[in-house]
Amino acid sequence: MKQLGVALIGHSFMGAVHSQAWRTVGHVYDLPARPMRTVLVGRRAQGAAHAAERLGWQDSTDDWKSVLRRQDVDIIDICTPGDSHAEIAVAALEAGKHVLCEKPLATTVAEAESMADAARRARAHGPHAMAGFTYRRVPALALARQLIAEGRLGEIRHVRAAYLQDWLSDPSAPFSWRLQRERAGAGALGDIGSHIIDLSQYLLDDTIDGVSAQTATFVGRRPLSDKPERTGQVTVDDAAAFTARFTGGALATYEATRYATGRKNALRIEVNGTCGSMSFDFESMNELAFYDTAQDTGGTAGFRRIQATEPGHPYLEGWWPPGHGLGYEHAFTHQARDLVTAIADGTDPAPGFEEGLRVQRVIAAVEASAADSSRYTPVDRPGSV
């Protein structure tokens, strides 16, 4: 079996999750190629070496450019802050490597455009690029997309989506790179809002046409983690709320915040159509609520719960017997499976960088609307992409 060497760049929270996925995927699925945890890259050599040993990587380095020259590396997996995504991804694609890049794709539309252009050029001679919008690969949500594509909901009228966390609700929580515009690009809007923007467009197979938005920054300065007597200025949003129109006519509402006390990772989405509705809450990630108007008879109308754990449901053929639920990490394993399969088949993985750019343009439109008194702002759609 052909081997695919993986270089992981970044080894904090997201790097650890990706490591688990690369460790697991070959044991769960019968893959057309075998991914190998070849080398881990960190900012400091000692830290990278320690992380490589702990996470099961064969080698480590503090020089990401060096891994692009290695013949035993086929895939570059980018888990760094957003300000480095474009430089690493473009260089990797030009070096002939496949690329998996965490969301959001970049910090600006211009950077995302350069990445999408590089992916388009690279595709002509083999390398593929994938954007890491992992919630697409939660089985219940993949099943929801199937139901919508089959017309089970009819004509889509409404989408309402929210991603709620609370890890910044304490004003004394320390300053981090996620609160710096130059490193993160946007705050809650880019960090978690990007997920629900992508997820809604994925479920409907449609694009957001325009938005009307508000954003807020609740705590302007936070203590530095290494020097708590000093503070750093927060230059991104803490929360964003906006309405939107889809090209197909559906009306949508979105909320992203890191100040929803009591909510740790509450990604929620509901879609209403002329023939039915579906609703999902990540805090019950193995369940999909489904309502069919054709069954609205006899005084027993209401949503029914689908346990998305059957072998015939998306991604479940490799896992446990029905009723034995999956968790957060498993969607990343599914992502690794899909990327390896696409590379082996020579097909474009989804979502590609073009779809990541589409999300970046919505983020830019939301920020522009919020800066202009919530004025309705069309999403930019250059004809080249």
Rank of each mutant, 00 (worst) to 15 (best):
I75K: 01
R137L: 10
A106K: 09
I88R: 08
F133K: 00
L55F: 12
Q71R: 14
D83A: 13
E150K: 03
F133M: 02
G151K: 06
V99S: 12
H85N: 15
R152N: 04
A119V: 04
A86F: 12
A110I: 02
I78C: 06
A122T: 02
T107N: 06
I78K: 04
D74Q: 13
M130T: 04
H128R: 12
D74I: 00
Q58W: 11
A118T: 01
S66G: 13
V109H: 10
A86Y: 02
R70G: 07
R69F: 08
A116Y: 04
A91T: 02
R54A: 15
D83R: 12
V90I: 11
A118N: 04
G96W: 09
A119R: 12
E102N: 09
L68R: 00
K103M: 07
M130V: 09
E87H: 00
R54P: 04
V67K: 02
Y135A: 01
R120Y: 05
R123I: 05
L153D: 03
A144S: 09
R123Q: 12
M115N: 00
G56T: 15
R137G: 07
A91P: 05
D59N: 04
E102K: 01
R137P: 00
V67F: 07
H98C: 00
A89V: 05
Q146S: 13
L153N: 03
L100Y: 15
T61W: 06
L68S: 08
L100A: 13
L143V: 01
V73K: 02
E111W: 00
D72G: 13
A112Q: 07
V67Q: 02
S84W: 13
K103I: 12
G56P: 08
R123A: 14
R136M: 10
T61A: 12
R136K: 12
A92G: 01
T61P: 11
E111N: 07
A112W: 08
T61C: 12
T61R: 07
D59W: 05
S114K: 12
D62M: 14
A112T: 10
D59H: 11
R121A: 15
T107E: 09
A52M: 08
V109N: 06
I76R: 10
R69W: 12
D117N: 07
A91G: 02
V67N: 02
T108K: 10
H128M: 08
K97E: 05
A89R: 03
S60Y: 14
L68N: 01
Q71Y: 07
L93R: 06
I78D: 06
D63R: 15
S84A: 15
W64Q: 01
A110E: 15
R54V: 11
I76A: 10
D117E: 14
I76C: 05
S84N: 13
D63G: 06
Q58A: 15
M115Y: 00
P139M: 11
A149P: 09
A112S: 10
G132H: 09
E111K: 09
V73L: 11
R54I: 08
C79R: 13
E94G: 00
L147R: 08
A131K: 07
L105D: 00
I76E: 04
E94M: 06
G151N: 07
R54C: 11
R145A: 15
P81Q: 06
W57K: 05
P104W: 02
W64L: 04
A142I: 04
S84L: 15
A142M: 14
A131S: 14
V138N: 01
M115R: 05
P139W: 14
A144C: 05
